[in-house]
Design a protein around this nucleic acid. Structure first.
Length: 276
DNA sequence: AGCCAGGGTCTGC
DNA sequence: GCAGACCATGGC
């Protein structure tokens, strides 16, 4: 898979079913910014990455083969056969069309605590501002990296803070929610790995004991922060798609990969709506 | 200018 | 249980 290793990073040749832009801009992560040259720069797990997609290849800058194998390969979910999943989902007519709209979307394997914070910020908010709040959060409480960006602050760093300490974020009523999440994660009352192993219903219930975490945020944390591909976040757009195409609920056959189906549907119905 | 943003909580029936 | 006001801020 690795075709070459330039000094600055490495090249992954011809990943199938992968669109860097669709994956990084579909509203699942908030720390990758598009650059004028078409690349993206972001931070995950305290690592800075510049990445581009050219001629069907992925160019990883600022990384080593060891770091790629140990982290980024998993982060971008490069070992999962999305072609096979799409084939299964495409038994359903609507999902077949939806998958064809954005055939390169992947579910990133993000950090649990980071996903929890970002989707608390996401409540009644838009993607641009979510990214702004998240970046101010990292600048205020994370560690400065050599490339000028900041790592994501730990829950231990946030737990002892007060509401006033979070004023610079300008995140409004979400500040109290963030503090409750930090306290529960820092104390161990909320434990990501443990929740990941729970049945979906139980995992949802536990996450929703955090103030400001309701059905939608809990589902996003499960899908994006714990890689539970059977989680299915429902917002207004998905609700609309369910009503329009399925009479309210998903067909049982797609349950195992409902989260991936959700991404395709989300992208599809919004794009279709814009065109109309 | 005003509506809305990948919602959740609290209150009042 | 369920609807509706309210929440803080800024993008468009």
């Amino acid at each position: 898979m690795i075709a070459a290793q330039p000094r600055t990073g490495l090249i992954v040749a011809g990943p199938k079913d992968f669109s860097l832009e669709d994956t990084l801009t579909c509203g699942q992560c908030f720390r990758f910014f598009p650059q004028p040259d078409g690349s993206f720069e972001g931070v995950a797990q305290g690592r800075f990455l510049k990445i581009a997609q050219q001629n069907d290849s992925l160019l990883f800058y600022n990384t080593s083969p060891e770091e790629f194998e140990g982290f980024w390969r998993g982060y971008f979910d490069l070992d999962r056969d999305y072609g096979a999943i799409k084939q299964r989902l495409s038994q359903d007519k609507t999902l077949k069309k939806a998958a064809e709209y954005a055939p390169g979307i992947r579910i990133l394997k993000q950090d649990f605590w980071e996903a929890l914070c970002c989707f608390i910020f996401s409540q009644n908010n838009n993607i641009k501002r979510i990214m702004g709040i998240t970046e101010r959060f990292c600048e205020a409480f994370g560690d400065l990296l050599p490339q000028g960006r900041h790592s994501f602050p730990s829950s231990d760093r946030i737990a002892p803070l007060s509401r006033e300490d979070l004023c610079p974020l300008r995140c409004g009523f979400r500040a109290d929610y963030l503090l409750d999440a930090a306290r529960k994660v820092s104390s161990g009352e909320i434990d990501g790995p443990k929740i990941r192993g729970m049945p979906l219903e139980e995992a949802r219930t536990v996450l929703q004991t955090i103030r400001g975490v309701g059905p939608k945020v809990a589902e996003c944390v499960l899908l994006y922060g714990l890689n539970r591909l059977d989680a299915f976040p429902v917002d207004v757009w998905i609700k609309r798609a369910l009503d329009r195409y399925y009479g309210g609920t998903l067909p049982n056959t797609i349950k195992e990969y409902a989260g991936i189906a959700q991404q395709y549907l989300f992208h599809y119905i919004r794009t279709a709506e814009k065109k109309a």
